[in-house]
């Protein structure tokens, strides 16, 4: 359906103010929205998170983002060229995959590995399914999961933010993420550090506030449905709170859950992926509540410290099913069967 938008012969003039885009009714294109426009807004929304990662991790962050984005664009171009499909490299969607993937990587991650993950994300995660709009899984997360299985050591080697170590006058220091500290050593990180991002972790996951700014911008432009990010974070907080109330000394508080790790990035930029989230309201509720539940369960009881990635990927797999079984009835349909 996306291709249709692009081929649409008469695009209305750009001056017309954006009103509202109802994401849940994707087949209708009543407004002058198209993929490039939405995608460029998403890139804009990712700027604060990118800026934060560059501030905390300096040159490595710039390098990783450039490598990932360039590989994603090149892979998309090559794939479409070989398959003799229209080239849609500049619609911004591949660039977003690259940025999101880079933001989920540890700052010390090697460039060649980031390139491999990006190529996998676009080739296997997106183009093999038929390109934009047809992929089942969020390509960036799929690339990240592939890297996780391919380079388990590199993807779990973290360092303190350079902004922090520079003061102490030392180079990169290996460190554990707040989630790993919580899981393996029972140590908590202060909410303030989590909020502003002065912690070890993936490049874009460290600063909750930078992601929040971008997310709110997207919400302001009406490109994302509030149900998805807030529902996901709310579900994590809710299930986190249940365990916290059962045993506050063992389990972290709900605020920790939504501030630490990939929760913010996942909730605002991955759960809200238009292609891989359900279109019906009921489906969306099921999607985010189950997703948040899974993330908390994996964090507290799984082998890994972080569960956001797998929770979203798992729920992605259910999207076709959710769309099918939660479709609202047409007016006048059914009831008497």
């Amino acid at each position: 359906m996306e291709e249709k938008t692009q081929d649409k012969p008469q695009e209305k003039p750009q001056e017309k103010p954006v009103e509202k885009l109802i994401v849940s009714s994707s087949p209708h294109f009543l407004r002058d929205e198209n993929i490039p426009k939405i995608m460029h807004a998403v890139v804009l929304a990712l700027l604060p998170a990118m800026a934060a990662s560059v501030y905390f991790f300096r040159f490595r962050a710039i390098g990783l983002i450039i490598v990932s984005v360039a590989t994603c664009l090149a892979t998309e171009y090559a794939f479409q060229k070989i398959r003799k499909k229209p080239i849609t490299v500049w619609d911004g969607s591949a660039a977003i995959t690259g940025i999101l993937l880079a933001l989920t990587l540890p700052p010390s991650f090697p460039y060649y590995a980031a390139a491999l993950g990006s190529a996998f994300a676009i080739a296997i995660g997106k183009q093999l399914f038929g390109g934009i709009g047809y992929n089942i899984f969020n390509p960036a997360l799929l690339g990240r999961a592939f890297l996780m299985a391919t380079y388990p050591v590199l993807t779990t080697t973290w360092s303190e933010p350079l902004a922090k170590t520079a003061k102490a006058g030392v180079d990169a220091v290996s460190a554990a993420t707040p989630l790993a500290l919580m899981k393996f050593e029972g140590k908590m990180t202060s909410h303030m550090d989590l909020f502003f991002g002065n912690i070890a972790g993936s490049m874009g996951e460290t600063s909750a506030i930078a992601i929040l700014i971008g997310g709110l911008y997207l919400r302001y432009r009406s490109y994302i449905n509030w149900k998805l990010p807030l529902g996901y974070l709310g579900s994590m907080a809710f299930f986190g709170a249940i365990f916290y109330l059962i045993n506050p000394s063992k389990y972290p508080d709900p605020l920790f859950h939504i501030l630490a790790g990939g929760a913010m990035l996942g909730a605002w930029f991955m759960v809200t992926d238009m292609v891989t989230s359900p279109v019906t309201p009921l489906g969306q509720w099921i999607f985010v509540i189950c997703g948040g539940f899974l993330a908390v369960i994996i964090r507290l009881f799984g082998g890994l410290p972080e569960g956001v990635m797998y929770s979203i990927l798992l729920m992605n797999a259910f999207v076709p099913l959710l769309n099918k079984h939660t479709r609202p009835k047409f007016f006048g349909e059914g009831g008497q069967a």
């Binding site: 090697p110 590995a113 592939f146 299985a149 391919t150 380079y151 388990p152 590199l154």
Partner: peptide, 8 residues
């Protein structure tokens, strides 16, 4: 750097 995923 071996691709661990390939032997999984």
């Amino acid at each position: 750097e071996p691709w661990i995923v390939m032997i999984l």
